Amino acid sequence: MHTTNTYLDFTRSNQLRAKFNALIPGGSHTYSKGDDQWPEFAAPYIARGKGCHVWDIDGNEFIEYGMGLRSVTLGHGYEPVVEAVKKQLPHGSNFVRPAAIELECAEQFLSMISGAEMVKFGKNGSDATTAAVKLARAYTGRDLIAICGDHPFFSIDDWFIGTTKINAGIPSAISDLTLKFSYNQIESVQALFEAHPGQIACVLLEAERWRPPTDQFLQQLKDLCHK
């Protein structure tokens, strides 16, 4: 997040901070948005956004690199999206049974993804990765999960959070089922498979983060998983 202001006034934000933290654990309903996750001069409380720009409740303007935790790729208040939402709202939303628009969306999505046969929409990345873990365990009949220890986040659910420092309340019987390997080090993955033969259900990682794959790491990883 980058500010376009030469002077930042957080008067209103500072007045609200105590109330936020008194009523909402961590001061935010999303952990990654909490005060302890941001530097001192980041925008405390956002009032509105347009494109990649946001304004806090004190009127300070910022360029928001994060863009809705990386999900708002079109920018805030993108007119075609706003108009589509306006058009749909009078018809209602979130019914107890599927709506026809869900099929339309699935068809359009699948038309753009080569090789995909079906699609299941989730509300966030945690739901998606946890669903993948459950599917892998159900299909393989195995319990262990291997994750890349160099990548910081996979899910809010116990199978991952139990491996982090904020693991209070998660039994070791759960966290012990998640193993870690190192990115670009195929030997670390091989060591896990050798130490736990026939027990690993799936391997999770980001294809690339701050370091690109080297020595055909991703292909080697795929080959190893398919053995």
Rank of each mutant, 00 (worst) to 15 (best):
T6L: 10
D9E: 07
N14E: 09
L16G: 08
R17W: 01
K19R: 13
G27M: 01
G27W: 01
S28I: 07
T30Q: 13
T30A: 08
T30E: 10
K33A: 12
G34Y: 01
D35N: 14
Q37F: 15
W38L: 10
P39D: 15
A42T: 15
A42M: 05
P44M: 02
Y45P: 05
I46H: 09
I46E: 00
I46C: 01
G49D: 13
W55S: 12
D56V: 05
F62Q: 00
L69S: 05
V72Q: 10
H76F: 01
H76G: 02
G77C: 04
V81L: 12
K86L: 02
K87P: 03
L89W: 05
N94E: 03
F95S: 15
V96L: 14
R97V: 09
P98A: 11
P98R: 14
P98M: 03
I101C: 13
S114F: 08
S114M: 11
F121S: 01
G122K: 00
A131S: 14
A131E: 12
A131T: 15
A136G: 12
R137K: 07
A138Q: 07
T140D: 05
I145D: 13
A146Q: 15
G149D: 06
G149A: 07
D150K: 10
P152E: 03
I161G: 08
K165F: 03
N167T: 15
A168K: 07
I170D: 03
I170K: 13
A173K: 02
S175G: 09
L177K: 15
T178L: 06
K180E: 12
Y183A: 13
E187M: 06
S188D: 01
Q190W: 06
F193I: 04
E194Q: 14
P197W: 00
G198W: 00
I200L: 03
C202H: 04
C202A: 15
V203A: 11
V203H: 04
E206F: 10
R211P: 05
P213D: 00
D215L: 13
F217Y: 11
L218C: 03
Q219M: 04
Q220E: 12
K222S: 10
K227I: 14
